[in-house]
Every structure is written in structure tokens, then in C-alpha cells.
């Protein structure tokens, strides 16, 4: 096993799949010689050339729409949207087209595309380089939405996403690219879509989260462990389809559920988890299902003091765990 950063694991996942499947192409802004603004595609152009690593114009709708057509004619496109904040020009192609081509054709056409996008705050990206966009896509039948938290999962889930016959939105919290490391096997492995994992076992409170917040939740769990609060952390890994069974099993054990995400709270993904728990595990609850989420601002502002005020931190999560545990 080798230790890899989060972005190295993504890069290797792309490279290994391109070696495995000659039909796979990568397309997006600056993905070629430059290797992407974060270097997620670094080295791919040198190995696979212009035909399979395509620098596109600054046209997000085109990146997705062309991927849809290419997939219909036998390719496996993996599109990079440079920042999740810039995905909105492609919303019509993603929601009206990619998500429902299979449904509207009654299964006679598929749309096997993967759309990667860095998201999230904490790197001074301000309003247009820091948004969380997962809730928009999680709402849409026909899409799958993947948000990995470890290098191992990043590579294994990416490979599953690329091989999946349906469109997958693959969101990468950019703060993790170089700050998160972990062991990644050298050989072939995949991590299935739609399966959550219990990252830390505990008995008093369940924290349901994904992406960067998994690390913060683990940090918070460590902080409160010394106070006798045993916290279970559920990493969703895929938010659509949602692994309801793992969430419910955990909440039925602990009786307390805290959902954490950086995206703002109103209409956010936490509401879906809270509703699931309320509907399916009501009799097991020993406290209100609680959400800790980003504030009601459209995204993180630029000035450091404002950004710091915006961000979820391990300490904020620890406070929420303590409050819920004491209920």
C-alpha cells in the first residue's frame, strides 16, 4: 500500500481507468497540458494525447452536452467542471438531458458519464470558488451523487462512477486535495456506489456526514470522547442513492442523530436525512434530529474573518455533539 493525497488518488483513478478502457476520454477546461487547475488530470495528456484528453472552451454546457452525445456513441466521458460554482450553465444538460435520457427513452439509451467538480470552502475561494452544490443534484432522479472523504474511497468510488451506466456527479472537496492523505492499494479495487460506511463506532450520538466534514466529525468525536461521549460517525460517501439502512441502523443504536454539512441548512441534504430518520426511526429517538450546517449566506465570503465565521469547524461539531448528548 502506498500513501497518497486525496488528489493523487483521483489522478490515479483517472489514469488507471483510461488504461483499462480505451473508450474513456477526459474533457474540461485546462485538463490537457496544464493538467487541470488543481492538477487532478496532470500527466494524462502526456500519456493519452489530444484525442482522449480534451481541453475545451469555457463552455460548461458544452462539456456536459458533448459528453452526453459521446456516451451515446460509445465513449466513456469523464467531464471536469473546473469549480462546482461554474456548473450552473450546464444544469439544463445535467437535469433535463443526462438525468432523464434513460427514463425518457424507456431504457433504450443510456448516459454513462461522470462529471467531476471541486467544491467547498476554506481555501479563500470566496463566493464563486467555494460553493457546495450537492443538494441541487441530490434532488434529481436519474443522477447519482458521490462525495468521497478518503483517498481510498476517492479512487475506488471514482472507478465505480466511471464504470457506472448512469450519470454520476462526483464532488471533490477541494480543501482535502493536499491536506488529506491515506493508504491506497496499488492494484485493482473499486468501492461500490450507494454504500455508506461507519468510520468510527460509538454508542451515544450518531453523526451523519460526508466529504471534508467526515474528518472534522472524527476530530470532534475525539474531543468529546474524553468527556465520556462515544460518537459514531457515518460517512455517507454517496448521497444519491442514499444508504438508508446504514444511517438507520446507527441511529437505532444511539438514539441521537446529528447531520453535518458545509452547505447551508435550508433545503439542504441534511433535511433529507432528518426526514428519513424521523419517518423510519422515530421510536428509537432520544432527542431531536439536529442539523449543523453552513450559515444562510450564498457561499463563503472572501475576507478571512468572514470565511472563518462561515466555516464549520471540529469545535462547532463538538459543541453540537455535546448539546445533543445532553438532551
Amino acid at each position: 500500500m502506498a500513501v497518497r493525497t486525496f488528489i493523487e488518488a483521483i489522478r490515479e483513478g483517472l489514469r488507471d481507468e483510461m488504461r483499462r478502457d480505451a473508450a474513456m476520454i477526459v474533457l474540461g477546461e485546462d485538463v490537457g497540458k496544464k493538467g487541470g487547475v488543481f492538477f487532478a488530470t496532470d500527466g494524462l495528456w502526456a500519456e493519452f494525447g489530444d484525442d482522449r484528453v480534451i481541453d475545451t472552451p469555457l463552455t460548461e454546457s458544452m462539456i456536459v452536452g458533448v459528453s452526453i452525445g459521446a456516451a451515446a456513441n460509445g465513449l466513456r466521458p469523464v467531464a471536469e467542471i473546473q469549480f462546482a460554482d461554474f456548473i450552473f450553465p450546464a444544469m439544463n444538460q445535467i437535469i433535463s438531458e443526462a438525468a432523464r435520457i434513460r427514463y425518457r427513452s424507456n431504457g433504450t439509451f443510456g448516459c454513462p458519464i461522470t462529471i467531476r467538480a471541486p467544491f467547498g470552502a476554506g481555501v479563500h475561494g470566496a463566493l464563486y470558488h467555494s460553493q457546495s452544490v450537492e443538494a441541487f443534484f441530490a434532488h434529481v432522479p436519474g443522477l447519482k451523487v458521490v462525495i468521497p472523504s478518503t483517498p481510498y474511497d476517492a479512487k475506488g468510488l471514482l472507478r465505480s462512477a466511471i464504470r457506472d451506466p448512469d450519470p454520476v456527479i462526483y464532488l471533490e472537496h477541494k480543501k482535502m486535495y493536499r491536506s488529506v492523505r491515506g493508504e491506497v492499494p496499488d492494484g485493482e479495487y473499486t468501492v461500490p456506489l450507494g454504500r455508506a460506511t461507519v468510520t468510527r463506532e460509538g454508542s451515544r450520538v450518531t453523526v451523519v456526514t460526508y466529504g471534508l466534514m467526515v474528518h472534522y466529525a472524527l476530530d470532534a468525536a475525539e474531543r468529546v470522547a474524553g468527556e465520556g461521549i462515544e460518537t459514531e460517525v457515518v460517512d455517507l460517501r454517496t448521497i444519491r442513492p442514499l444508504d438508508a439502512a446504514t444511517v438507520l441502523a446507527s441511529v437505532r443504536k444511539t438514539g441521537k442523530c446529528l447531520v453535518v454539512h458545509e452547505d447551508n441548512r435550508f433545503g439542504g441534504f441534511g433535511a433529507e436525512v432528518a426526514a428519513l430518520v424521523a419517518e423510519e426511526a422515530f421510536d428509537y429517538l432520544d432527542g431531536p434530529v439536529t442539523r449543523l450546517a453552513g450559515p444562510e449566506s450564498p457561499a463563503a465570503p472572501y475576507a478571512s474573518v468572514l470565511e472563518d465565521a462561515f466555516l464549520i469547524t471540529p469545535e462547532k461539531i463538538a459543541v453540537a455533539i455535546r448539546t445533543l448528548a445532553a438532551y
Binding site: V66, G69, A70, A71, A72, L75, S105
Partner: peptide, 20 residues
């Protein structure tokens, strides 16, 4: 290819098919 109601979207699908 399967068509939808939002107009013009299929132009990009044609380009993708031609690219492939």
C-alpha cells in the same frame, strides 16, 4: 437520438456523437 423539450440542447449531443 432521444429528444427533449428544452430547445437546442440536442446540438451538443450531435457534436458529442460526431466527436465519438
Amino acid at each position: 437520438f432521444s429528444s427533449s423539450s428544452p430547445v437546442g440542447t440536442q446540438a451538443l449531443h450531435a457534436v458529442g456523437i460526431a466527436l465519438a
